[in-house]
Design a protein around this nucleic acid. Structure first.
Lengths: 341, 341
DNA sequence: CGGGGTTGTCAAATCGATTTGACACCCAGC
DNA sequence: GCTGGGTGTCAAATCGATTTGACAACCCCG
């Protein structure tokens, strides 16, 4: 249980030098004779010496680790196929830079967020990456406490908090426009609450494409719901039960699109013959469904990489202008869309 | 960038006491007058004081955090729907116990594992939870270094390393036996390499059920592949192209089962009319596919909880007998299985 | 042979918190 | 008034590593 750690003192003793000299030898900063360095290195190797992390952090004043905060909009950062890809990008960058990532289990409420303020003020982490929706006040507190924050897949309107986001409005626009070009005139919308950026932007893009196609908006064709496949199934059920149901539906995430497809199948509708469906994300699963899903591909890994690099720049003080980076996306046409019959 | 931290010294100064007294007051251990305690508390509040984590760890000798190591069998702990559920269980326990979880990005090779040995020997973490396949030698090194290790969904044969696993053999047995009871005589197997416990055990369970049903094993009906939906699609393609193809297939994970279903669809086979399919895991997606997947439900969250509690016990020295806990599972019959026609 | 310049090593201070033990103070009792 | 038992506070030591500056030991050169 309590096997005692080998400390620098042990190494120094074995090498027959003082502690500071051993430190110098290992870190190679100052003048140490080759012979001494060799002896210290050898001693460290023999004793399997590893510097005590807490002690280093204390004296060096940095922790070389960052926190990844799952926003309140997700049930958990592990359950989300979209963030999995984003985190792959994030992880690659921090790994290469020698940083550790601290991830907590899924936050169940916004009240758990202050935990990260504490970690930041305890100097346990050098920076914070927030994925998804988060309380504005919290972000401001953290920044005020001197800890760099970068937002991922979300941004605070009008505030200069650095962020990396997908062009949600553009993606929703391309998807809807494509459906209109296929000849659909009744295009349903399964989206998210418009009181946060993602929900608002996708709704805007959808409406703009309709307008440009000369189609008036029909609130009866729009359902705003939480991001959940089951809720999407219900929502699509409502739309498909209308007297004059949509012949195409744009769902703002792939998960929702899968729910829509399930609802269509339950009603015996063929896809894409009876109903065209477009999602957004291009999660891995999208290409293996039957038929494979037409969707808007978000540059997920790139999103993670950009955000991670921004945070590193902020931590190192290289860059100080907070910017919001908007990444372009791309419509990927697969099997769930077809002309209006 | 460098906003200076408020330390205990600042709090003490503001309260008009010495540093040790302030510490006593905040931690409430020894005798401190009520008046002094009140003043210190007030000062701490005003200054938004948070103890420096590294300093505490240094003096207290523990970090109150554990590492979660994704094994080498997965592309990433984020991409895996199965481990998402397991981690939900793990997270709940550690959260409640006041421990932090450190998770690294997906390991790409076994060579990255020593990173955790370092963290352990740097006393950065109090314990390690390894999810999935991992190098035996590494586990032994870590334990030898005095850091408790618990294995999740894997175990080391013949070695007394504490672990929590699913009854893989039992699950494979129930699934195969159920297919046999439905009247199928040619039952395919899409499994994993038999050179690690999961692969071996599922294969054993499958063979045992066949034997009990009086069906001889047919190596031509068995495909051993990496856990990947695409590879499962290919493997099922091979099986379904046989002169005398299987009328039922047991795939050792739900993800593989989805790949099998895709392959069947590509060949115009109806499920379950032309082909019965059973998976194992019961990932969230399993119940929303079309038709919903018959599968063996693994006690995923319970698995995580048990492993987390075992690790806590080891860290606290409460329990010292390494045990391997085998969790029972349950066949969930849904829509992908039917009688042989 | 002594002064200036290297060169290698170590003593001491530091980071921020906690724990131990010494000290001053007060009150009661003989 | 002196002793003894509490009580509250603080000085000092500690955890393990790093950094600064002092101090030898040595060399070269005039």
């Amino acid at each position: 249980m309590r096997s005692k750690t080998t400390s620098l003192r042990d190494v120094a003793r074995l090498a027959g030098v003082s502690v500071p000299t051993a430190s110098q030898a290992l870190n190679g900063r100052a003048r140490v004779s080759d012979e001494t360095r060799r002896r210290v290195m050898e001693a460290a190797r023999r004793l399997r010496y590893t510097p005590h992390a807490a002690a280093r952090r204390l004296i060096l004043g940095r922790s070389d680790s960052v926190a990844i905060v799952p926003g309140t909009n997700m049930t958990g950062i592990f359950s989300d196929l979209f963030y999995r890809a984003v985190l792959t990008g994030v992880g690659g960058v921090f790994e290469e830079a020698g940083y550790r990532m601290l991830i907590t289990p899924p936050l169940r409420s916004a009240s758990q967020l202050p935990q990260f303020v504490e970690m930041a003020s305890a100097r346990e982490i050098d920076g914070v990456l927030v994925a998804g929706v988060v309380d504005t006040r919290w972000v401001e507190d953290t920044i005020a406490a001197g800890t760099p924050v970068v937002l991922l897949d979300n941004h605070l309107s009008g505030r200069p908090v650095p962020a990396v986001v997908n062009d949600n409005a553009g993606g929703a626009y391309s998807a809807t426009r494509y459906l209109a070009e296929l000849g659909h005139t009744r295009i349903g919308f399964v989206g998210a609450a418009v009181d946060y950026p993602f929900g608002r932007e996708t709704h805007d893009g959808y409406r703009r494409a309709l307008a440009e196609a000369g189609l008036g908006p029909d609130p009866g064709l729009e359902r705003l719901i939480p991001i959940d496949a089951e809720r999407a199934r219900e929502a699509a059920g409502v739309l498909l039960s209308l007297a004059d149901p949509p012949t195409a539906i744009f769902a703002v995430t792939d998960l929702l699109a899968l729910g829509v497809i399930t609802a269509a199948r339950e009603r015996g509708l063929a896809i894409p013959a009876d109903l065209s469906v477009v999602g957004m994300d291009d999660i891995d699963l999208a290409s293996v469904t039957n038929p494979p899903l037409t969707t808007v591909r978000i540059a997920k890994e790139e999103m993670g990489r950009r955000a991670a690099r921004m945070l590193l720049d902020l931590i190192r003080g290289t860059d100080v202008n907070p910017t919001i980076v908007v990444l372009p996306n791309e419509l990927v046409v697969r099997g769930t869309t077809g002309g209006r019959r």
